[in-house]
């Protein structure tokens, strides 16, 4: 920080020119659409845009009074918590294991990070092939042992579990990378001291490692939530398309469906505005608490 602190540009316009592309991109791709969403959320527009009516807050009022929207709020909460904690726990275990002194550790670490490089729709298709009720491999293997059908076309809970697992799987690498970094920052001496005091490996994990990891854990909880809320469209679109019924329709998926399939731009924009408010809250949380560090 101190090195860069007094960087001086000889030309006083140069710094502005250098930040200009980023400012332009932000304006064109973030502020302009956000402004459009705000505007459209107050309108009712025919699909071809030839008829436009100002309806005030009616889009919002309709949204909050609709049963379907409430269902998608509940789905989003279940989905987000599911993805956040499944990712967190699995990646913590994986990171702890990959942090052991074992042969081939770099290979394990690399393999653990690979899923993160796979695009969500592709991940969705891979899991579809595993779990499809008609041609999925897992269903096929199941049929040897049990009569139970993993048919997520008619079972909303199975569908939800499937999209949670797939989304968690694609995000594992991100959490593992942060956990590994966090684990390596834990001073050896502390763990050794605990060993000398007779702490079992589990006690060392519980009383030394986890508390020292808490800033990372908190950071990852927020990041996982943001991921689950805003970044999982591809997975849901590839596997369940929000179904069966509305069992896996999250807020983002509903906004997409109402806007681009149903061409109801007013309602879709109102939903986007709600999502925008959520994003602002999360960003604020992130800045407020993460920048300050978690105390332990």
């Amino acid at each position: 920080m101190s090195l860069l602190e007094r960087a001086v540009f000889k030309n006083r316009w140069l710094p502005y020119v250098l930040v200009l592309p980023q400012v332009v991109i932000t304006l064109v791709f973030f502020f302009w659409p956000a402004f459009q969403s705000l505007r459209l959320s107050l309108l009712r527009v025919s699909p071809f845009g030839d008829r436009v009516f100002f309806v005030g807050l009616r889009n919002f009022q309709q949204l909050f009074s609709s049963v379907e929207y409430r269902i998608s709020v509940v789905n989003t909460i279940v989905f987000t918590l599911g993805v956040t904690f499944v990712t967190l726990i699995v990646s913590l275990v994986a990171a702890l294991l990959a942090n052991q002194k074992i042969r081939g550790r770099p290979l394990y670490r690399t393999l653990l990070l690979v899923p993160y490089g796979i695009a969500p729709p592709v991940a969705g298709v891979v899991w579809l092939f595993l779990f499809h009720p008609a041609y999925g491999i897992v269903q096929y293997l199941f049929s040897f042992f049990t009569d139970w059908e993993l048919n997520w076309y008619v079972d909303g809970a199975v569908a939800m579990a499937l999209v949670i697992l797939t989304s968690a799987w694609t995000h594992l690498g991100y959490d593992i990378a942060f956990f590994l970094a966090g684990l390596q920052l834990i001073p050896r001496e502390l763990l050794e001291a605990a060993s000398v005091d007779g702490a079992t490996p589990f006690q060392r994990l519980l009383h030394v490692t986890l508390p020292l990891l808490s800033p990372v854990i908190f950071f990852l909880v927020v990041m996982n939530m943001i991921y689950a809320l805003f970044d999982t469209f591809g997975v849901i679109h590839a596997i369940t398309r929000g179904g069966p019924g509305t069992a896996t329709e999250t807020l983002v998926y509903k906004a997409y469906k109402d806007g681009f399939l149903a061409m109801n731009m007013g309602s879709s924009s109102a939903q986007s505005v709600v999502l925008m408010v959520l994003a602002i809250i999360f960003t604020w949380l992130q800045f407020r608490f993460i920048e300050r560090r978690v105390s332990y």
Binding site: V154, G243, A262, M263
Partner: peptide, 19 residues
């Protein structure tokens, strides 16, 4: 709004089929 209507019908059919 037939795109949405078909979607609504299929959603409700699924709600029926999943009991």
């Amino acid at each position: 709004n037939f795109v949405q209507i078909r979607d609504v019908i299929e959603e409700e059919l699924e709600n029926i089929f999943r009991g």
